[in-house]
C-alpha cells in the first residue's frame, strides 16, 4: 500500500517551546491510524503542521506524495479535518455554515450533507452559538465528511459526543474506510483506538515512543493477572503495577508464563484470571518506562 502520510524527522518549535521533535511516521492508504497521547503531547501540533496551519521548523513531510509546505493547496481538497475545539462563526445558522464549507471547496455537497445531518441528528436551523459542544462537534463532523475526501484528520473527535453518537460516528467512518479512505485519528480515549484502529503511535512530550499494530502494542507487554483469595502480593519476579484490593490482588506480569503458574500453585487462591492488558495499561506502561529513563 502506498504511503498517504509520510513524515521524516518532522520538527516544530514554538519559539523555544517544544511542539514535536523528529517525528517519523508513515500511514498507508486505507488505514485507520491511531495517534495517542495526553494533552500537550503534540498531537494537535502534528496535525496542524501537516495541514499547513503552522510552519514546520525542520524535517520533511508529504501527504499523497506532495510536500506539505509547497503543495498545501493541492493537499487540502483531499482532506477532511475535524478540529478538537470545533469553533465556528457563532452568528451563522448550522445549515449556512455547512453550505459555506462546501462553497469554499467549490463543491455542491447538499445531498451528502443532508444524509449526514439526518444520521447524526444535526439541527440545521439552529444558530451555531446556541449549540452545545457535542452539537458543535456534530457540525464539525458534517463539514469534515460531506465532500467525501480520501483522507481524514480527526482530532479528538468523540469528546462531547454521547455514546450513541460516538457509535454512529464510527460506523460512518468505517463505511468510509471500507470505501478506501484513510483515517488519522488522534485521541486520548484508548478504548476507541483499540477498537477501531489497525496501527497506532504513542506520542510523549513531542516524541513518538512506540508505533506498531495495536494488537502487537498490546501483546509485546505483560499479562494482566488477577488473583482472588489472597490479600498480600506474592513475591514473584516480573511483577509490576501491583494493586491490592479487599480480597484480591492484581498486577501486570512479564516473564515466563510457566514460572508464574508454578509460583501460583502454592497460594490459597479462590479464583484466577489472566488476560491481555488493555491499551490503557500499555499506554501507562510506556509512559512510566519513559519516565524512569
Amino acid at each position: 500500500m502506498p504511503a498517504v502520510i509520510e513524515t521524516h524527522e518532522l520538527t516544530k518549535y514554538y519559539g523555544k517551546n517544544r511542539g514535536i521533535i523528529n517525528l517519523n511516521l508513515s500511514v498507508s492508504e486505507g488505514e485507520i491510524f491511531g495517534f495517542i497521547g495526553p494533552n500537550g503531547s503534540g498531537k494537535s501540533t502534528t496535525i496542524r503542521t501537516l495541514l499547513g496551519l503552522i510552519n514546520k521548523t525542520s524535517g520533511k513531510a508529504e501527504i499523497f506524495g506532495r510536500d506539505i509546505t509547497e503543495k498545501n493547496r493541492e493537499i487540502l481538497p483531499m482532506i477532511g479535518y475535524m478540529p478538537s475545539e470545533a469553533m465556528f462563526y457563532g452568528s451563522m445558522r448550522v445549515g449556512e455554515l455547512i453550505r459555506y464549507s462546501a462553497d469554499l471547496r467549490g463543491m455542491d455537497c447538499a445531498a451528502e450533507a443532508k444524509t449526514l445531518c439526518e444520521r447524526l441528528q444535526v439541527e440545521v436551523k439552529k444558530k451555531i452559538e446556541e449549540l452545545s459542544l457535542g452539537n458543535r462537534k456534530k457540525v464539525g463532523i458534517v463539514c469534515a465528511l460531506q465532500h467525501r475526501p480520501p483522507l481524514y484528520f480527526l482530532d479528538e473527535p468523540t469528546s462531547g459526543l454521547d455514546p450513541l453518537m460516538q457509535k454512529e460516528f464510527f460506523s460512518i467512518l468505517e463505511e468510509r474506510n471500507r470505501e478506501g479512505a484513510t483515517v488519522f485519528l488522534s485521541s486520548h480515549v484508548l478504548s476507541e483506538v483499540q477498537e477501531h484502529c489497525g496501527r497506532a503511535a504513542i506520542i510523549r512530550e513531542g516524541k513518538i515512543i512506540a508505533c506498531d499494530y495495536v494488537s502487537l502494542l498490546v501483546k509485546t507487554t505483560a499479562k494482566f493477572v488477577t488473583l482472588a483469595g489472597i490479600t498480600e502480593a506474592p513475591s514473584i519476579p516480573g511483577i509490576f503495577d501491583l494493586h491490592v484490593a479487599n480480597n484480591s490482588v492484581s498486577f501486570l506480569y512479564k516473564g515466563e508464563i510457566n514460572g508464574l503458574l508454578s509460583s501460583l500453585c502454592a497460594l490459597p487462591l479462590t479464583d484466577l484470571t489472566i488476560t491481555e492488558p488493555g491499551l490503557e495499561d500499555v499506554f501507562l506502561h510506556y509512559y512510566e518506562a519513559e519516565e524512569s529513563k
Binding site: 496542524r48 495541514l51 499547513g52 496551519l53 493547496r73 487540502l76 481538497p77 482532506i79 479535518y81 478540529p83 475545539e85 469553533m87 465556528f88 462563526y89 457563532g90 464549507s101 469554499l104 471547496r105 467549490g106 463539514c143
Partner: peptide, 11 residues
Amino acid sequence: DRTAEFLFTHP
C-alpha cells in the same frame, strides 16, 4: 474566535 482552523483547512 478560533475559526481560523475552519477557514484555513479549506482549500
